[in-house]
Amino acid sequence: MKKYTDHDLLIMFKSIEKKNYAFNYIINLYQERIYWHIRKILISHEDSNDVTQNTFIKVFENLIKFKGESKIYTWIYKIATNESLSFLKKNRKYFFESIDNVSSSLMTNLKSENYFDGNEGEKKLQKAILTLPIKQRLTFNMKYFDNMKYKQISQILGTSVGALKANYHHAKNKIQKYLKEN
């Protein structure tokens, strides 16, 4: 497959003839990574599937307005994160419940999830991650599993690099503690 830069893709997307080609190229390039990012937040495959589709529909609707201030990938990642958090908010048990308190329902999802292939240790790690507050969880997932740079995570979450480093440090300690105690 021919390689296109973000700039090429944006120009192609603005032309009527090449719009669909550019969008399909973007789907091919990012759908898996975006799906896995969402899956780590929502745990359930079905929910992740819905949110991934919604994310790409949002991309399709708004790419024309994208000014290229960040990489397309970072921008899509940001949409995916927001969509996932909105999904969690919508599915809270109580309206005023904090989004950090949804871990119990996600834990239930993890226990009943058919599409989980990890061993007991990996399941324990996932449970430990689910005990974290949402921002620490997002930071940990992006840093630990996706090997993303703090600067990139900062653009996605709108948090300073320093705060992200602190988030990651706390998250790691909490997970270590959970793993030792359970």
Partner: peptide, 13 residues
């Protein structure tokens, strides 16, 4: 009990 010793492979399928 150490997260650095975990394989970072995707556990979900």
């Amino acid at each position: 009990n150490n997260i650095e010793q975990f394989d970072k492979k995707q556990s979900f399928i």
